[in-house]
Design a protein around this nucleic acid. Structure first.
Length: 210
DNA sequence: ATCCCGAGGG
DNA sequence: CCCTCTGGAT
């Protein structure tokens, strides 16, 4: 795919939602960090349902530690992988308090050192909490990048590098959310809504519904 | 490559 | 039933 076509694709995705953001509910960088840790292999709706109970009970790292692993589990049992997530949430809070004064660090290395935080989660925090031009490649963006031909790659890291390399700079800051929202609501995994897609004419995926 | 693992959709 | 959902650690 050439640069001009990528420009047109991003212009159309931006047109639909000029100022996109996450659909996860949060008030502070700390809450965003916890919500993103919980979001692994789960829907944002499910995460919001869980944090609606969790955050009032534990709005910051210190109060989360007071809940403990079993306490956190009570709120997130409706999410998949909840045993791992509860353990990681508490371990992450320990590290935030001991090494970062209870705050969320702004450095990638410090973020990725937190249990349950890998490159994807770190990229979301850097972009959404701190405004950096990172692109977190999740299941949606991996699919959209490959399916459309915008930035194909064999694994998530290859797709991320490809996206950062070819993304028009004007769109880099919000590219993550434009792509993810398109993947979530239009370019869905099972039955993509090609008939309703605003970049249908620019996409390299053969429309099975046509 | 494999395990972790609940809820919703088709 | 099977697949998917803003993955990470081993």
């Amino acid at each position: 795919m050439n640069r001009a076509k990528r420009e047109r694709i991003m212009a159309r995705l931006a047109e639909r939602d000029p100022d996109p953001t996450t659909e996860l509910h949060y008030d502070t960088p700390f809450q965003l960090l916890i919500a993103v840790i919980l979001s692994a292999q789960s829907t944002d709706r499910g995460v919001n349902a869980a944090t609606a109970g969790l955050f009032p009970a534990a709005p910051d790292a210190e109060s989360m530690l007071a809940l403990g692993v079993e306490g956190v589990k009570e709120y997130i049992r409706t999410l998949g992988l909840f045993n791992n997530k509860a353990r990681n949430v508490i371990e992450t809070c320990h590290m935030l308090v001991e090494r970062h004064c209870g705050e969320v660090p702004r450095q990638r290395a410090a973020l990725e050192a937190l249990p349950g935080v890998g490159r994807k989660t770190a990229n979301v925090i850097l972009n959404t909490a701190f405004g950096e031009p990172t692109i977190a490649v999740d299941t949606h963006i991996f699919r959209v990048a490959n399916r459309t031909g915008f930035a194909p790659g064999k694994n998530v890291r290859a797709v991320e590098d490809h996206l950062v390399k070819v993304m028009p700079k004007a769109y880099l800051r919000h590219a993550h959310h434009w792509l993810i929202l398109h993947g979530r609501y239009v370019c869905t995994a099972r039955k993509p809504r090609c008939a309703e897609c605003r970049i249908h004419d620019l996409c390299e995926y053969p429309d099975k519904t046509a």
